[in-house]
């Protein structure tokens, strides 16, 4: 009996290897970010630098304002966006899960269509700039992530299957309206799925740089990911320009330090990596709970 419970060593080994494959690149990034520039050019990347140097972090702190500001933008957008996203998604999902809702079929189909077809970049741009006029505002960063068809369906399924209909019925029999049912009964019972979708949303908002690229011209409103992307791409362009524009090699500028990029990557990854463990238990439960009922 006992031996049956123990995992086969080969499976253990497999998972150890898989975890290492995930961890090693992070370790390397961390180490490179702390390697001195001379050591880097002489010996290249290494898992334990010959000489530690925090010059990249010092540089970031010295010129900290843009980074801190973009950090602030990211945090603000992620926080507001995630709450708003949960509110909008869950309320739509709740409506769709109610059998007596007359537009249920039509709206479900509508949501499904948005999952299958996208409008394309240009219409998207036109709606936000010409119709809503939200370019260069934080709203432009928040609105695109508010609603995703996939999230709505995950939540609707959860509401429909995991909340006993009798609970809802009894609440309504006691005189609760739809709003009361939604806020007092359904939401408190749905923490797992809210945490799951919340995590999707946090990661989505945190990692989104493309919306910034398209809608934000004001560098005070850059979010962290776009700030990093921008720094990197600008450096790459400057490197390649001399060749493409046929300009004198003398005008080439020195590119930012390798370890600086790595330090930025560490900074960008850290917050999400810290949030994940707290939400992880809901994450697993939320996804499976809608599938099978025990």
């Amino acid at each position: 009996m006992r031996s049956d419970n123990r995992t086969h060593p080969a499976i253990d080994l497999f998972f150890v290897m898989a975890s290492l494959a995930c961890l090693i690149p992070f370790w390397l990034i961390l180490m490179v970010s702390m390697t001195g520039q001379n050591a880097l050019t002489r010996y290249g990347y290494s898992f334990w630098p010959a000489q530690f140097d925090f010059v990249a972090y010092r540089f970031l702190l010295h010129d900290a304002e843009p980074i801190l500001r973009s950090f602030g933008v990211s945090i603000l957008v992620t926080a507001i966006g995630t709450f708003a996203c949960l509110f909008v998604t869950s309320s739509l999902a709740f409506s769709l899960s109610r059998k007596e809702f007359p537009l249920r079929r039509f709206l479900s189909l509508y949501v499904l269509v948005t999952m299958l077809f996208g409008g394309g970049l240009l219409p998207w741009y036109l709606v936000y700039t010409k119709l809503l006029h939200v370019q260069n505002t934080l709203l432009a960063l928040i609105i695109p992530g508010l609603l995703s068809g996939f999230n709505v369906f995950v939540m609707r399924t959860f509401f429909a299957t995991s909340i006993p209909p009798s609970v809802v019925d009894s609440a309504q029999m006691d005189g609760a309206g739809d709003f009361r049912t939604y806020f007092s009964i359904v939401l408190p019972l749905s923490l797992p799925v809210l945490a799951t979708i919340g995590l999707f949303s946090i990661v989505g908002y945190w990692n989104d740089w493309f919306t910034s690229l398209v809608f934000i011209n004001n560098d005070k409103l850059y979010n962290l990911q776009y700030f990093l992307y921008n720094t990197l791409m600008n450096a790459q362009y400057l490197q390649s320009i001399a060749d493409k524009a046929h300009i004198d090699a003398a005008t080439l500028q020195v590119q930012p330090l390798e370890e600086l990029r790595m330090a930025m990557a560490v900074i960008a990854v850290l917050p999400v990596a810290l949030v994940f463990p707290f939400l992880q238990k809901y994450f697993v439960r939320g996804l499976t709970i809608g599938a099978v009922k025990g």
Binding site: H133, T137, L139
Partner: peptide, 12 residues
């Protein structure tokens, strides 16, 4: 957000 963003939009 709409308010403060709008201002910035104009001068940028």
């Amino acid at each position: 957000l709409a308010g403060c963003g709008g201002d910035k939009g104009n001068d940028s």
